[in-house]
């Protein structure tokens, strides 16, 4: 298993191996699931209370479906760990964070200093997402 390089949570990582979305439906005791780009994240919504870890796989970084999957889960109130795995690169980290990912297990380890710089690059954001950061418009109008 690829190591989790960055984690922005304080709780204990889930121990169970992640199962596929298909087998998750059958294995009623599974608490970790792995989403592939073609999977519909919404099928997990009825089961969020028993999920502790969702891994979202990025086989190639240019396939952006995982960003929507992550946001959909967070918008539905999922509060467990959301881990980006696979072709996870420095310059996608900030976008991934904003879509609700809170841990990262890149296939190839990232340069830690570059990763930190990339995550801190933009002081403000134009659009609100699920990360709780107020949008620039909210600051402009005293709504944040």
């Amino acid at each position: 298993m690829v190591e989790t390089q960055l984690r922005f949570r304080d709780d204990e990582p889930a121990g169970d191996p992640a199962v596929t979305v298909d087998s998750f439906g059958e294995q009623t005791n599974a608490s970790a699931v792995r989403i592939e780009p073609g999977d519909d994240a919404r099928v997990l919504l009825p089961h969020l209370d028993r999920i502790r870890l969702v891994e979202v796989n990025f086989p190639v970084f240019g396939d952006g479906r995982g960003y929507s999957a992550a946001r959909i889960l967070r918008e539905a109130g999922y509060a467990g760990e959301l881990r980006a795995v696979g072709d996870v690169l420095i310059d996608q980290l900030a976008f991934l964070r904003r879509c609700g990912f809170d841990s990262f297990a890149p296939e190839h380890p990232l340069n830690a200093a570059d990763a930190e710089a990339a995550l801190a690059r933009y002081p403000e954001v134009y659009s609100p997402t699920v990360d709780g950061r107020p949008a620039i418009w909210a600051k402009r109008h005293g709504l944040a």
Partner: peptide
């Protein structure tokens, strides 16, 4: 323009 700039979900569209 502002909404779409660095939109985190839509930067790797098909």
């Amino acid at each position: 323009r502002q909404w779409s700039t660095f939109h985190p979900e839509f930067s790797f569209l098909p």
